[in-house]
Design a protein around this nucleic acid. Sequence first.
DNA 1: TAGATTTACTACACGCCGTTCAAAATGCGG
DNA 2: CCGCATTTTGAACGGCGTGTAGTAAATCTA
Lengths: 241, 241
Amino acid sequence: MTEDTTPKPRANRRARLREQTTGEIKDIALRLMSEGGPDAISLRAIAREMGMTAGAIYSYFRTRDDLVTTLIGDVYSELVDAAQAARDTVPASDPGGRLMAWAQAMREWAINEPAGFRLIYGDPVPGYQAPPDGPGKAAELRACTSLTDLVAAAWPTAAPLQKDGRAYTWDEFDSNLVAHVREEFPDLPPEALALTMRVWGRMHGLVALEIYGHLRPLIHDPATIHHDEMRALVTSLGLTA
Amino acid sequence: MTEDTTPKPRANRRARLREQTTGEIKDIALRLMSEGGPDAISLRAIAREMGMTAGAIYSYFRTRDDLVTTLIGDVYSELVDAAQAARDTVPASDPGGRLMAWAQAMREWAINEPAGFRLIYGDPVPGYQAPPDGPGKAAELRACTSLTDLVAAAWPTAAPLQKDGRAYTWDEFDSNLVAHVREEFPDLPPEALALTMRVWGRMHGLVALEIYGHLRPLIHDPATIHHDEMRALVTSLGLTA
DNA sequence: TAGATTTACTACACGCCGTTCAAAATGCGG
DNA sequence: CCGCATTTTGAACGGCGTGTAGTAAATCTA
């Protein structure tokens, strides 16, 4: 969306202003989302906040869903960046610690930005349909490849513990992900990719329940449980935290 | 609501009609939800479908959120019933099989009724805030106690495998749940309740990712992965499927 | 059976929303 | 300065949840 490769080599001021306004729209949208949840993202509210008319936003985003799609991409990138940064504070010689760091960062980000989590992993907004590709999917693929890397590092110790799992073939998975993993880790079997998905689900479950308010009434400090679960996850991969 | 214990054996025509209309509203709401997602639950759409005015519904539900709350309770009860029924097809002598049956039923229900899953575990509707108590919470507690029972049955074999978990105390958990478990299983330690939450999260994660469309693009058949993960879960409790 | 009361419903209004469109304002390049 | 593309406005359309006033029917009461 809004892919203008400036037919004229100059015309810079206009483009700069446009970019700035686009950024302001996104910033305000994110602020409204932080304050009132994803549903607070309304073109009219954004325009009101900017001293504009709702219709003016249509110069920057073709529709509200386009704006939401862009926001999802930004927010998801932010999440992946945070998780990767946390992971990289632990040396590669400690794969269990790196996985733990990733998981902890993921949960903490979600707790601090619950609306962002809902935006990415829930129904962001009534009637929104995520496009099959786009910035959101790109960030998700980035997250998934990073997670695959973590699982790959754990595979030597994890493989012997996955005996009850079924056999998998490469063509059961997304081709982009497969291309990445086969290039990066030529010796990795497809079962490792299946394990990656399972790890993802295991990291997601408790956080999703907590963000949507299903855990807090039942246990006072969900962080403890999450930490225990992630330790068990690391252990189940034959690693130590 | 509509708790009329009919003081007079007759003269209940009004009550009967009211109950029938209430049921019709809920049925149509559920149908609309099945067809168009939770967001399709709008008073105006329901009324349109019934040949009424939107305002008429306010005779049966104080507000739209009240209707949604009632629906959540109904749908959640349905889910728990289905899971319990599936669990009870497996003899109590096979706790691993019972857990597997529960998990499979849970996922299958979610796949067949994705809107229901979103209604329970996501943002059902823009701006909806679940009441701290109510039919939804009651069903959730029912699900949780059932899950606790399953974990309790597995505790003899699972306990020795939970060594890296932290110690817990009873007062960290919801008092209702604690009361149930302490009465039903006097020998169970609080760590078993923590394990229950973790099991819940582990059963929830992959299903949530799948329902919200994060798994399908990456793997063709999420069912296989879910099955493997649930088998690993059972194994991690020292049981066999 | 006649009157009083409760209930179910309509019609309308209010303010919110996304979206569209013609017209007006704006500002850049020549 | 003009021409022109872009940006913005303002009004409109339909849809939403929610109140309020009024009406007609069903029920209760005397």
